[in-house]
Simulated assay, not measured.
Amino acid sequence: MDRLIYTAMTGAKHILEQQATTAHNLANATTTGFKAQIDSFRAVPVLGDGMPTRAFVVDATVGTDYKSGTLQQTGRDLDIAVQGEGWIAVQRTDGSEGYTRNGDLKINENGQLQTATGLNIMGDGGPISIPPDSTITIAKDGTISTVSKLATPSQTTIIGRIKLVNPPAASLKRADDGVFVTSNGQAAPLDPNVTVASGTLESSNVNVVETMVNMISLARQFEMQMKMLENAQNNAGKADQLFSMNG
């Protein structure tokens, strides 16, 4: 009886946790450059006194779906999308380096090139600053060129290059702030083979239909676990009645 309760109880608990992950993926179906999180269930034996005859269910985070999203033309100078494999290096709030595929860039009031969420874009020598009153062009290799709107004749000036990296997928993990970091905390080296497309954004790789079907499936699994607990309670009640009659 206790084995049934352990399995159903932990199954219901971790189904809710996986449902939360699925809902998070669905909520980011329109987030630029978002990569879906993948979870799965696994059985773990309960260790303690006696034989390990009981088991409980655990929702394990398998990893991330790194497949590319669809590239969408925007025509905006500050929009870039990584073509194929690779990442854009950013400076996190704690000063460490993180990586994102969200190329929806902006320039803050201090002239620093940032992501839409306010993280500084990293260049070869650190964060990139854009001169005021300039027209910006981002080349395929991440080189940033500016043309002053005030100077006549206008002259093109190269001010830096966006750091583009391509660390192994197995060495990356998702941080709490939504960007990815290396497992050992070390900065990934610049990869000259990574290229970007200007005036383009990468959509989320979340499959909305597949995610909705998964949510419905998890809801039904939760109901099944609840019915198993009800059956365990009914069985216990019937057993008590039999013991009372025998007494």
Rank of each mutant, 00 (worst) to 15 (best):
G75Q: 09
L71V: 04
G95M: 06
G69W: 10
W87I: 02
T74S: 06
F56E: 08
K67A: 09
Y66M: 13
G126Q: 11
G111N: 08
S134F: 01
A139F: 02
R92Q: 11
I130F: 04
I107P: 05
L105Q: 00
G75N: 03
I128P: 05
V82E: 01
G98A: 06
D94I: 10
V82I: 12
K67L: 10
I80N: 03
R101S: 07
G98F: 07
S134H: 05
W87R: 02
T100L: 07
T135V: 04
I136H: 09
T137P: 00
S68A: 15
F56R: 12
R76H: 13
A81H: 06
G111Y: 05
G84F: 10
A116H: 05
N120T: 09
Y66H: 14
G123K: 03
F56W: 10
K106V: 07
D133H: 11
Y66L: 11
D94N: 15
N120P: 02
I107N: 03
L78H: 11
S96H: 09
T117A: 13
N110L: 13
V62R: 13
L119V: 00
P132V: 06
D77F: 04
N102G: 02
I88G: 06
P132N: 10
A139R: 11
S134W: 08
R101F: 08
I107S: 03
W87A: 04
D59P: 12
G95R: 02
T137W: 00
P127T: 12
P127R: 06
V82Y: 02
R76A: 14
N120S: 14
N108Y: 08
A55T: 15
I138Y: 04
G125P: 00
Q112H: 12
A116P: 01
L119A: 12
D104V: 08
N108F: 06
V62Q: 13
G84N: 11
G75T: 08
V57F: 03
L71S: 07
R76Q: 15
D65V: 00
M122K: 03
T64Y: 06
T135A: 11
Q114I: 13
G75I: 08
T135M: 11
N108T: 07
P127S: 13
I88A: 01
P131R: 08
T117V: 11
V57T: 15
V82G: 03
S68N: 15
I138D: 06
D65H: 10
E97Y: 10
L78I: 10
K67H: 15
E85D: 15
V62K: 12
Q72R: 13
D94K: 12
Q83R: 11
V57P: 05
